[in-house]
Design a protein around this nucleic acid. Structure first.
Lengths: 235, 235
DNA sequence: ATTGATTTCCGAACATTGTTCGACTTATAG
DNA sequence: CTATAAGTCGAACAATGTTCGGAAATCAAT
């Protein structure tokens, strides 16, 4: 019965399994010692193989990093999406803040990962225009854009969200830059000298107020943190 | 007359000279190949010394990086300050934008340097609370804070600017996060898909308008770029 | 000017890294 | 069953950061 689940050869399964193992190990090393600690030989050691054998699966270390970046984008997108779903029935003002708050929380609990996907750590590594990283970006921001569009009364989000985004990209990029800037500074310890949690909340509320968007419930921040604790499910 | 300029021993001078050379060479390597290209042996090669000899001047590569970060902060601060002085007589609305614009321009012409000082590239490297990097930060932001304070009618900026900053830190951090977020995304090629120059201008004007600050001259962006060209002086 | 104590400099070595090459074994397809 | 492809490995190469011991230069005294 080796060909029971045919169409899937044994090597194909083992290959996918090994690539998965390599990626989780790489992210483990990343969490421990930063980007510089992801080492080819260390990965080989972790999966019990010769360094030379890994070249069957990745052409070089940059290619592995690329795969890692894609998976990390997906991880962030999943975190944002889960939060959005958990607050799907909350008032509109609250739902506007869910995205930035999930974004920030994931960034603070995955600082090296956040820097990995958002700042160029390699020499000439620049995501090519039509590359897969841009689609990964849209995956992250689709939920947030949808809520903003709803709040601003944009065309029915049903079919062509992309068109609405293109039309109002100025507004969306402005909002994104706002909370991304705050989060980046926080992740890299440039706001350690103040109560950044409270400052973030005030900044977010101000951004929404300035953009004539509905205000969130006064207790939203606590509600979000409470939901975080109760969601000790997926890593 | 070897001791003419006494108080300064020959070794002292040569030491300072060599440290300077090492730093400029390190920034050269940084500009070429990114952070990972700064290599101990390469530095030794560039100054014509044995790798072992460099340990007389820096305990390890992290210590050199620290010195490099400090000098890079000073470089950014100098760029901002020069721009501020050049526009000292411009209308208040224009002067509000000079800081962010100089910040952005320097960042775009020194992308690896920008990432070096603002994102943790080393494993456990975190600027200690009372460390010298925070004072370097204030050096960068003092000119901008002064203008914002003037526009908002804060207490006489004569003696205690620090007190005014502490009082209104929320506002200042909000503004900083806004343009820093935009610049960070731009530096790392996350806004390549749009006309980021125009988007930056619109975002900045919107930020100022939202904060009830005076608007800049319509032609400010061009005026700034024009000044840049005429300032082909210091690197 | 001579001495004695630092500072500077270097060659050699060690452990580690990414990557390549050729030979060997194993799985897949016809 | 067999030929082709995929996987695995050991050995080797060049390059890296860092340490150590000793030689040379410079400094601060007498």
């Amino acid at each position: 019965m080796t060909t029971a689940t045919s169409g899937e050869t044994r090597r194909g399964r083992q290959r996918r399994q090994l690539v998965d193992d390599l990626c989780v190990e790489a992210r483990r090393q990343l969490a421990v010692g930063g980007t510089g600690s992801i080492t080819w030989r260390g990965l080989a050691r972790a999966v019990g193989m010769s360094p030379a054998s890994l070249y069957t699966y990745f052409a070089n270390i940059d290619e592995l990093l690329t795969e890692l970046i894609l998976r990390t984008y997906a991880d962030l997108a999943s975190a944002v999406q889960q939060a959005a779903m958990a607050f799907a029935d909350a008032p509109l003002g609250d739902r506007l803040l869910v995205g930035p708050y999930a974004y920030r929380r994931w960034a603070l609990t995955h600082r090296p990962d956040f820097n990995l996907i958002f700042t160029d750590q390699l020499p000439g590594y620049a995501a090519e225009p039509g590359g897969p990283t841009v689609s990964a970006q849209t995956l992250v921001f689709a939920p947030m854009a949808a809520v903003v569009g709803e709040a601003m009364g944009w065309p029915p989000p049903g079919d062509d969200l992309a068109a609405a985004v293109a039309e109002h990209q100025q507004t969306l990029v402005g909002l994104w830059a706002g909370f991304h800037g705050f989060v980046t500074l926080e992740v890299n310890h440039h706001l350690d000298w103040l109560d950044s949690r409270a400052a973030f909340e005030r900044s977010m509320r101000q951004m929404m107020e300035f953009s004539s968007l509905p205000a969130a419930t006064p207790t939203f921040a606590d509600a979000f943190d409470h939901w975080l604790l109760s969601a000790a499910t997926v890593t």
